[in-house]
Amino acid sequence: MQRIEHRACFGGWQDVYEHASDTLGCTMRVAVYLPPQAAHGRLPVLYWLSGLTCNEQNFITKAGAQRYAAEHGVIVVAPDTSPRGDDVADADGYDLGKGAGFYVDAVQAPWSAHYRMYDYVVHELPALIEGGLPASGARAISGHSMGGHGALVIALRNPGRYRSVSAFSPIVAPSRVPWGAKAFGAYLGDDRAAWRAYDATALVETATERLPLLVDQGDADEFLDDQLRPQLLQAACEAVGHPLTLRLQPGYDHSYYFIASFIGEHIAHHAAALHA
């Protein structure tokens, strides 16, 4: 990885790296916050997955997470949300194509040539981080909206790989909402049975690890009723006894003002598990 940004922040360093991705077949950027404790040894990592239209910059410039990561001694890694480049397939609109990878491995052309964000986040990115930075191998994962979907799915599909998981305003049932149906139809094809592999409400039914889920959702979110529908995840978890803390936060919308208000609590939640 080649470092292309390097800024002092809360006693540590907010960096951005660029690297050639074998998984995605393009050049990717990933933001990394190294807290001051990283100068003295290896630290656990919180992987953050951002939402639709975002890249590696949104979380690091808007969430205010560095203060809490420095307090708790946690590295924060925030990759871009999709492959990038002139030869990468794209579409009109914000909810398909670049900036909208949905953290799946596409099987349909033309998307399958590059859109393998699930494999990238689960395998290639951690190998790069743990191989080249002072990362201990202890992992947690979180995200917002499309990224909240990605965090829940990745944690549920990989028992033992992450010590904790949380999400802000996640798309909990992409198979049953317009955003997910559009993306899954394009990336995965028309067989809705295949969509279940990337649907958190389906995955909790057969999860072999009861990793507790922490979800914060604003009750003034403009996408709450048609795209997010957290009650579907609540019902799925109740049906099988999967531990879920679902907090409906009064007055908050879908924006980074919401994330900034509660990111400190989420990082403390992850730090407790990562340092245990």
Rank of each mutant, 00 (worst) to 15 (best):
K182H: 08
A183D: 00
R161E: 09
G147H: 01
S142Q: 13
T208K: 14
A235W: 00
A109Y: 11
V153C: 13
D216Q: 13
L125N: 04
S136M: 07
S175E: 03
E124N: 14
L228Q: 09
L228S: 02
V172T: 07
S112P: 01
A197V: 06
M146N: 06
D219Y: 02
R176H: 05
A173G: 07
R176W: 01
P212V: 12
A113F: 00
P212R: 13
D221S: 10
S175I: 00
S136Q: 05
S175R: 04
V122H: 08
A135K: 10
I154Y: 01
L128D: 03
L224W: 00
F184S: 03
H123A: 14
Y187I: 09
A127K: 14
L188N: 10
H114L: 12
E238S: 12
Y162E: 09
P170E: 02
L211E: 05
A109T: 15
V107M: 05
A220M: 09
Q227E: 15
V172F: 00
G148V: 09
Y118P: 03
P212W: 11
L188I: 13
P212A: 11
W195V: 13
T201Y: 01
V215L: 10
S166K: 10
G180R: 06
P212Q: 11
D216L: 15
V153F: 09
E205N: 07
L125K: 11
V204Q: 01
T208G: 15
R176Y: 00
R139E: 07
V204L: 04
A106Q: 08
W195C: 09
T201Q: 01
P178Y: 01
L152D: 03
W179K: 08
G150Y: 11
L128E: 07
S136L: 09
I141M: 09
T206P: 02
L128G: 04
D190W: 01
E130S: 14
E238N: 13
E222F: 13
L133F: 15
Y162A: 11
V215Q: 05
L188C: 12
Y162N: 12
L156G: 01
Y187S: 07
V215I: 15
R196G: 03
A197C: 09
G131Q: 08
V215C: 07
T208N: 03
F168I: 06
Y118C: 11
L152Q: 04
R176C: 02
L125M: 14
W195H: 10
P170S: 04
G147C: 07
P134Y: 08
D199P: 05
I154G: 05
Y118T: 08
Y118D: 14
P230Q: 04
A235I: 00
H123S: 14
Q231D: 12
F223M: 12
V121L: 13
E238I: 03
A194R: 15
R139F: 04
S136V: 08
N158I: 09
G132R: 15
A138Y: 04
W111I: 14
V121S: 02
